[in-house]
Design a protein around this nucleic acid. Structure first.
Length: 121
DNA sequence: TTGCTGACCGACG
DNA sequence: CCGTCGGCCAGCA
């Protein structure tokens, strides 16, 4: 195998994503790009979404419904096993959804590198 | 092992 | 404004 990965890599890219998503407080949402940027791989925003896809295979439940795209659109609603489920989950947390889009996205936006780094507010 | 795809983002025309 | 393309990394056939 030429593609050997670093042995001391206990926390994989995916694990980091899961960890951040789980830290998302209720009533807050984040974007794939924000997480990717926090991980230092802004260009790999796709991997963040891909991690969510794999998250459903994990025993641990990942609140992927709190993760949306850059415009606050619920792109992965179909992958939840029910597009209505994702919207209802968000609404249940106090997030308003309109046309599969998050209302006041900038207000409920939760920036990982900002909240986890500065740890203020 | 190689190759394609994917819940994105940003740039270009 | 809208369509197209490239890039990033990991999983699956």
């Amino acid at each position: 195998m030429k593609k050997e990965k670093e042995p001391g890599n206990e926390t994989s890219f995916f694990d980091k994503v899961y960890d951040i998503v789980r830290k998302i407080p209720s009533g807050r949402v984040t974007s794939y790009g924000a997480i990717a940027e926090y991980l230092g791989t802004r260009g790999s925003a796709r991997m963040v979404g891909w991690a969510m896809n794999s998250s459903h295979t994990k025993t641990s439940r990942i609140p992927a419904h709190r993760v949306v795209n850059r415009v606050g659109l619920l792109t992965g609603k179909h992958h939840f096993g029910g597009m209505k489920v994702m919207q209802q989950l968000l609404e249940s947390e106090g997030i308003e959804i309109e046309e599969d889009k998050i209302v006041k996205f900038d207000t409920v936006f939760w920036d990982p590198k900002k909240e986890l780094n500065k740890k203020r507010k």
